[in-house]
Design a protein around this nucleic acid. Structure first.
Length: 885
RNA sequence: GGGAGCUUAGCUCAGCUGGUUCAGAGCAUCUGCCUUACAAGCAGAGGGUCACUGGUUCGAACCCAGUAGCUCCCA
């Protein structure tokens, strides 16, 4: 059968993925082996695969596959998140397209639509993960809103309520006027924007006092970026020490348009330098103002409704959007003579992470989880390294957040999600319990007259993260069945791989839940990937259109190529600047491996005696492989994935293909390849299998394909479950010898190139050993790789030959062409100069008493060696120079 | 405003507790090769005042201080 010259992923990927599935290689059940567990960061059920998923799922799969090969019971649990806000927004939009308004639907009808939609389009992303080669145990696929997981969420809510950790109250929350829900602090992103700072003057009340002093009208000027909130002002505040305003302490001023009289209060919270040093106070629409309001017992006038439009309480512009009103009121105030000036400034504005609407601080009744006590173990155990964050720099960020954590607003004014299990009667009593029946019982205990129809459940649902924080426990049914086999075996999980953007949303909270409900960490290591950006460092986004479609990339370069491309540009802990050229490099690498196979596969074997060159080549590669494997293992243990990949890449491309295979490759005689001796062939197959194994976590498909092509296999003899190679531990000095041999070869090749000697022309090389013993073991290899007619040893310099000097030996290459003596002299002189300079620097070091006194002995020894080497080299060059006529 | 981190070759990055011919890798570039595994390849080469300034040290890319620029997080 003719094997194509290039690797074609299309004919292998689907084939092997279904083969793996069919043989249940991804499946994990508890057994006596050591478990290795990862829970997937559940993507939004409505989502499609983007480059960020691509990156972290590739890493997870690499970790899982390697663990599986190491003989661990590898379990990767997949699943999706119901993502309340995002999904509800999508369903609302979809219904709107059909001409249906959410407000016209009952809760039940809406949820019916939502579920239908979820069943139809949800989980596309999981199918896409299969294309990538993700070896998840699909039988364990979970969804955060399935019955068992929802039950866990409700139970946890009830439990925390009973423990007094959850409370309900009116607080200033971040209101998303588009999503029409409260969101948590973490869901607000602050962006710097260009704004205008309006200076508005308010008239001081009690004019008579001023007039009596003959001062005329008095004003106080405030500065604000949000003039539309003026209608809700209930005070003006100045710093108590501010000389400019001391005469106004205790007086009142008039809010323009609404003509409300409000007090002028003092508080040292005020920054005197900002604006005019006088702050308008709107307790309903700013968190700081709210705090001032509480402190100074100010009236709260809520002038902006839930949808971001002015409310009745505003009295003006009722029903108009806050941003329209901002412009209008500025104009109207101008006409009324209240605007003193307008400045351009930059300030930070909060945006909703989900809808990108400008967040409105708003007072509302919400449910909160107290964070102070519950978060303590989660902080401690990250600080003491029980849970490791990789890279470590995130520990600082984590610590800072945990030490300043605010209560978590967990209620959302949505329907898609777990409904809050709180029940109210008509008298304002509240009970928290699972079912209406229980609620009736409980409420009757408080209010004996209560009727079932008077009882209603809280309309809100819980924050999505209030379900996903339980993920590492709930996917193993740890709430439903706390002593179950699964939870006891797989929990705590090993590694979590995700982006730093959800460090607080999710990671921190999972750690909290882990300690609260299992008394144990949820995972030992958190690998935080960078953010995938484009070549110019911009975040990938739909708007910019700079995000490639991962599935298209896979079609173009193959899943293995894309995986390699992804990891090549993913330095540990840094953002990665993705470019398609990396996936191209990945594809080229696939092809290289493919062709190494084609070479080996094409060989005929014979029972001939193994040449010395082949014996040496095998010994060398064995040693090299072990040396590199240790390095690769070490890099894995430090989660330095891109470096582990690069080490693997070089082992395969450089050491195996460029050196080893070239060394043992049989010669061509009369247009036919000579057969290779059996012993070498067998060793090469074993090497190739080892190479495939270390490649497998990165490139699952091509390695599985070649695993089966290189040798006949039993049905279940697959590389996916093959044993990860073990380093033999032998450190052979052959690799050190070989470094010198390689240098000799490179020098000869370089000479050939410089002198324009065709590849086919054979050369003679003479070696003159100046120091140490003569090692002839490698001569055959040099002859082969440099196409030499002979390699001989001499004791005197060879005249009329080009030469170069390595450690302890000189090499001479006589050429048929005439030597350009002047040029050769110049080259040698340059070399001489460099070596003399080097010797000098070594000697300066050695003659420095303080160096000799302070440096480590082996270091000094090394310097001495450098000195003698350099002197020998200088001597050799000088002799050669003298020999040139 | 507070905090964290970064700045090394054209690009993306390594360089652990200062000391090996220590200034590295991959890609890109240049030169020569269509050599019967692979041109998605082979062979070879050129590229850097380690952001800047000062300090500590026998010795600094590495430690300290300051300056500039960039990024992220928090309020």
């Amino acid at each position: 059968m003719e094997i194509p010259k290039t690797y074609d992923p299309k004919i292998t990927e689907d084939k092997w993925y279904s083969y793996w599935l069919q043989h249940k290689f991804f499946k994990s059940v508890p057994d006596e082996r050591e478990p290795y567990t990862i829970v997937i960061p559940p993507p939004n059920v409505t989502g499609v695969l983007h480059m960020g998923h691509m990156l972290n799922n590739t890493i997870q799969d690499v970790l899982i596959r390697r663990a599986r090969m190491q003989g661990k019971n590898a379990c990767w649990v997949p699943g999706t998140d119901h993502a309340s806000i995002a999904t509800e927004a999508k369903v609302v939009a979809l219904l709107k397209e059909k001409g249906i308004n959410k407000t016209d639907l009952s809760r039940e009808d809406f949820l019916k639509h939502a579920w239908e939609w979820k069943e139809k389009y949800g989980g596309i992303i999981l199918k896409q993960l299969e294309k990538l080669g993700a070896s998840c145990d699909w039988d364990r696929t979970r969804f955060t809103m399935e019955d068992d997981l929802s039950e866990a969420v409700i139970n946890v809510f009830i439990d925390l309520y009973k423990k007094g950790q959850i409370y309900r109250g009116v607080r200033m929350v971040n209101w998303d006027p588009q999503g029409l829900t409260a969101v948590s602090d973490e869901e607000v992103h602050h962006k710097e924007v260009n704004s205008k700072l309006y200076y508005v003057k308010y008239k001081i009340e009690d004019l008579s006092l001023a007039l009596s002093k003959g001062e005329g009208e008095e004003w106080i000027t405030i500065a604000t970026t949000r003039p539309e909130t003026i209608l809700g002002d209930t005070a003006v505040c100045v710093h108590p020490d501010d000389e400019r305003y001391k005469h106004l302490h205790g007086r009142r001023c008039i809010i323009p348009m609404v003509n409300r009289s409000v007090p002028i209060i003092t508080d040292d919270y005020i920054t005197m330098e900002f604006g005019t040093g006088a702050l308008k106070v709107t307790p309903a629409h700013d968190i700081n103002d709210y705090n001032l309001g509480v402190k100074h017992k100010l009236e709260v006038i809520d002038t902006i409704a839930a949808d971001g439009k002015m409310s009745e309480a505003a009295k003006f512009y009722v029903g108009e959007d806050r941003f329209t009103v901002r412009k209008k009121i500025a104009k109207d105030l101008e006409e009324l003579g209240h605007i003193v000036k307008v400045e351009d400034i930059k300030n930070k504005v909060g945006y909703s992470e989900r809808t990108n609407a400008v967040i409105e601080p708003k007072l509302s009744m919400q449910w909160f989880l107290k964070m102070d006590k519950i978060s303590k173990p989660a902080l401690e155990n990250v600080l003491n390294g029980e849970v490791k964050l990789i890279p470590e720099k995130y520990v600082n960020t984590y610590k800072h957040w945990m030490e300043n954590v605010h209560d978590w607003c967990i209620s959302r004014q949505l329907w898609w999600g777990q409904r809050i299990p709180a029940w109210y009667d008509n008298k304002g009593n509240t009970v928290v319990c699972k079912t209406k029946e229980e609620a009736i019982q409980k409420l009757k205990g408080i209010n004996s007259e209560v009727k079932s129809e008077d009882i209603r459940q809280d309309e809100d649902v819980l924050d999505t993260w209030f379900s996903s924080w339980l993920w590492p426990i709930s996917v193993f049914d740890g709430f439903k069945n706390p002593e179950g086999k699964d939870i006891n075996y797989y929990y705590p999980t090993n590694d979590l791989v995700t982006g730093p953007d959800i460090l607080f949303f999710w990671i921190a909270r999972m750690i909290i839940a882990g300690y609260e409900y299992k008394g144990q960490k949820p995972f030992s290591n958190v690998y935080l990937t960078g953010i995938v950006r484009d070549k110019l460092g911009r975040k990938m986004s739909k708007q910019l259109g700079n995000s490639p479609d991962p599935i298209e990339l896979i079609e173009k370069y193959g899943a293995d190529g894309v995986r390699v491309g992804m990891l090549l540009c993913a330095p540990a802990g840094n953002d990665l600047l993705f470019d398609e050229s990396y996936t191209e490099q990945g594809r080229n690498f696939s092809n290289k491996i493919w062709n190494a196979f084609r070479l080996i596969n094409g060989w005929e074997t014979a029972y001939t005696k193994q040449t010395q060159a082949n014996t040496i080549a095998i010994r060398w590669f064995e040693a090299k492989f072990n040396e590199q494997l240790e390095i690769i293992n070490d890099l894995y243990s430090k989660y330095r994935m891109s470096e582990a990949l690069m080490a693997t890449y070089k082992l395969v491309w450089d050491d195996f293909c460029a050196w080893y295979l070239e060394m043992i490759k049989p010669e061509f005689v009369d247009g036919k390849s000579l057969p290779i001796d059996n012993e070498t062939y067998d060793a090469t197959i074993v090497f190739f299998e080892k190479i495939l194994k270390v490649l497998h976590p990165f490139m699952p498909f091509i390695t599985e394909e070649l695993w089966h092509l290189i040798r006949e296999r039993a049905e279940k003899d697959c590389i996916i479950v093959a044993e990860w190679p073990k380093p033999s531990g032998e450190t052979d000095e052959i690799t050190r010898h070989f470094d010198v041999v390689m240098e000799v070869i490179t020098n000869i090749r370089n000479l050939r190139k410089q002198k324009n000697i065709p590849q086919k022309e054979q050369l003679q090389v003479f070696e003159k050993v100046n120091q140490g013993e003569v090692i002839k073991t490698y001569d055959e290899i040099i002859i082969k790789l440099c196409n030499l007619s002979s390699f001989e040893y001499v004791t005197a310099n060879v005249d009329n030959a080009f030469s170069f000097v390595l450690k302890h030996a000189e090499f001479f290459v006589p050429l048929s062409q005439n030597m350009d003596v002047a040029a050769e002299k110049e080259r040698l002189a340059k070399d001489l100069e460099y070596n003399k300079g080097f010797l000098k620097s070594v000697e300066i070091k050695l003659s420095n008493e303080k160096f000799v006194a302070n440096a480590k002995p082996e270091l000094i020894e090394n310097e001495r060696k450098k000195q003698s080497d350099a002197m020998a080299k200088i001597k050799a060059i000088e002799e050669q120079l003298a020999g040139l006529k």
